Amino acid sequence: MFRKLAESEHGRMFGLGKRTELNVLVLRDADVIAAGVRSALAEAVPGERPGLERAAALIERAFTVPDADLRARWVHERLARAGHEGPADSVEAIRTLRQAEPGLSLRAAVQLSKDAAAYRP
């Protein structure tokens, strides 16, 4: 999940300096979701337990995914929705990303595109 940031927050999240206009912040709700599943697991009947235990394990794994991977997936999702099939760090990809996310600066789009191109799931 992502949200738009105020300009003053941009550099701190991504370590790119104050002048970078990066508008993406990774938000993690896995801890809240995991607590809900654990609560349901505590009250579960035996037939529900295996599914809830599996769900809890998946949530725990999702919580450990690095922010850089989440940002890269976000870029790839935006590019795919826009129909871009080429390299994530091409000029066309950067243009497509900025069209998909109009508030994204050129500098931020370039950095996100480079990071997405380096991403290996």
Rank of each mutant, 00 (worst) to 15 (best):
R73A: 14
A93D: 04
E60F: 05
A93Q: 07
H84Q: 14
S90H: 10
G47N: 11
V91M: 09
P87A: 15
R107L: 11
R61L: 13
I33K: 10
R12Y: 07
A57M: 05
R107E: 15
A42S: 10
A30C: 05
F14K: 13
A40G: 04
R78P: 03
F63N: 13
H10T: 09
M1F: 07
G51S: 08
S90R: 02
S105D: 06
R3F: 11
A117R: 11
D115E: 15
P102G: 10
W74G: 06
Q99N: 05
T96K: 01
V32Y: 00
P102M: 14
L5R: 14
G15D: 01
G11V: 08
R71M: 04
R49W: 01
V65S: 03
T96Q: 04
L70M: 05
V45M: 08
A57E: 15
D31I: 02
R120H: 11
L70T: 08
R81F: 10
A80K: 15
W74Y: 15
I94Y: 01
A44K: 01
K114T: 09
R28C: 11
V91A: 12
R49V: 06
L25T: 01
L70S: 08
R95Y: 05
R98V: 08
L16K: 08
V37Q: 00
P66A: 13
R54C: 01
R73K: 13
A72S: 15
L52D: 02
R71V: 09
L104H: 11
S105P: 12
T20Q: 09
G47K: 13
L52K: 02
E60T: 04
A42E: 04
